[in-house]
Structure formats: C-alpha cells, structure tokens
Amino acid sequence: MGRVAIEQGYFTIPDDPAEPPRLLGSKCPRCGEHFYPRRLVCARCLHQGTEAVLLGPTGRLHTWTYVHVPLFAKKDGSVDAYGVGQVDLPEGPRVQAILVGGPDDFEIGMELELDLETLSSDEDGNDVVIYRFKPTAGSGRVA
C-alpha cells in the first residue's frame, strides 16, 4: 500500500511522507519562462520544446477565499467548508488550489507550502492524494 495521485502528471509523491511534494512544471530554454502544468509550447515566446522542471514547494498567497458549501465535484464530501487560494510560486506561475486551514488562518502575502491530502483509497488499498497548500511554520496570520 502506498500513495497514488488523483491524477497523473501534475505533482510528485515523495517516498518520505514528511517531505513536501513538488509540482511538475515546464521551463522554456529560450526565454526562461516557467509554467504549471506542463506544456510543450512556450506561452510567452512560442518556442516549441520546453524542459521538464520541478516547481515549489513554497509560494506566496496572492488571494484567497473561504467557501461555505461542500467541496465541489464531491472530491471529498465530508468537507463542508474550505479555503481556496491563488499562490505565486517563486518561479513565476500562479497556482490555484485548496488551502489547509480555517477561515481565520490566511492573509494575502503569507508563505505557503505544498502538502498532500488523502481523499480516499483505491481498490488496491492505496491512498488517493491531491495537493493543497498550507501555511508554513511561522507564517501564521500576523496578529
């Protein structure tokens, strides 16, 4: 039994559960722009043939909201309210994802770190995981 991604091709699942995942991104060898998720053609200079890179695991919160209805698309029906944010990775891409924490835990500009959450288990007994962002230690909301 191990951990499997809800969908292949978007993020790593480290062997060590204490290690944060990374996002599977692309870098343009000509203009240097980074992208998430992976793409073949550079969206900035239209160069064909980007390089595979790993992005994150930290970023800064650009904006966030707290949603008061059950998690959309029933990925996790037990969750009736949750945070959503846009996170700016140091490499450039802005990533939209679920946030870990309560309605009072977030502030624009705070540092967040990628984290894996278990949603369910598959028929082989593996944990099915999705990535989310959580506040890094010490980056809690300034009082």
């Binding site: 978007y10 904006t63 959309f72 698309a73 944010g85 846009q86 939209q96 679920i98």
Partner: peptide, 16 residues
C-alpha cells in the same frame, strides 16, 4: 482533468 473541476465557480470570483 479532475484537478480542473475541484473548486466551486463562486470561488474564482470570490478570489478576485
């Protein structure tokens, strides 16, 4: 893409 359909539409506008 499953990752593409996780979030309630109201949330994107709330982020803005």
């Amino acid at each position: 893409d499953q990752l593409d359909s996780t979030i309630l539409p109201a949330a994107y506008f709330a982020l803005w």
